[in-house]
Amino acid sequence: MPTTACITTFDLADLPAARVLAQSVRAAHPTWRLHAVLLDELPDDLPAGIFADFDTVVPVAALDIPRFPGWIFGHDRMTARLPAGVLLLGGMLGREADLVVYLDAGSAVFHPLDLESGPLAAASILLAPQQIEPNDFAPALRDGELASMRQGIYSPAFLAACNDRDGLAFAAWLAGMMGRHQADSRLGAALPGPLFCNLAPALFDNVRVIRDPGYNVGGVNISRRRIAVGADGGIGVNGVPLRFMVFPSAGSPEEAMMERYGRGDIELYELMNWHRRQLARHAMEQRA
């Protein structure tokens, strides 16, 4: 039976968010294995069971990244997330799973992602664009499409690859770019990690770009997405199920975009409040 692994990366400050993600993945996909990269060194006095939401947690130093000190120096806690995830993804694909899904620690899954069956199952590589519908309001265009042109067309919070020729080639290439080349000054100035994914449809076959508003809902695209809760208790976006949402960190530009383009939708604020409550709960447990 094909196996699926979900990976994420976090530092200790983001452990509450990562736990929210892990629990949401477990609820939607009980059979998935959950793996994480810890971007900090493991402290000696870590409370027992603090990583219980994950099947494995490995420290980033264990990823065998070439010229690791330079690599880690070149990142901050946010920009290291995707590259570290990609490096783990590359290592796991084929060895431990037939499908590996990376999700950013700031996201949460609501309805199942439907990656293993249906139309998305046929793809080797899955990417979720930041925008799937053009904006026509100048500020939203500036914060949306124009920002994506600079920082990456595809979401840095999600990617998936299958254990096949194209998936393996993509994973190896992306790991190489994010592991070696990002730390290699001979290749010029370091580029934002997500930008590399722009090349994927050009370089690889069987790439599926998920143009479904239920995936990758976040500040960068909320201007074109409207959340609604149905009578059956399901949460939808533009009439389709909400698959996963990327929650902005406090004070981030994405949070301002949620505010600016959310149109006062109460359901959007309910989701954000829910995420904040979960973070607070886990943070309290962590302190206890």
Binding site: V229, A231, G233, G234, E270
Partner: peptide
């Protein structure tokens, strides 16, 4: 009233609406 704000109609307790409600 889900989260004291929106009438919910009492969906199944395992629903997403209940998950995000206090």
């Amino acid at each position: 009233l889900r989260n004291d704000a929106v009438f919910c109609g009492a969906p199944p307790e395992g629903s997403m609406a209940c998950r995000i409600c206090v």
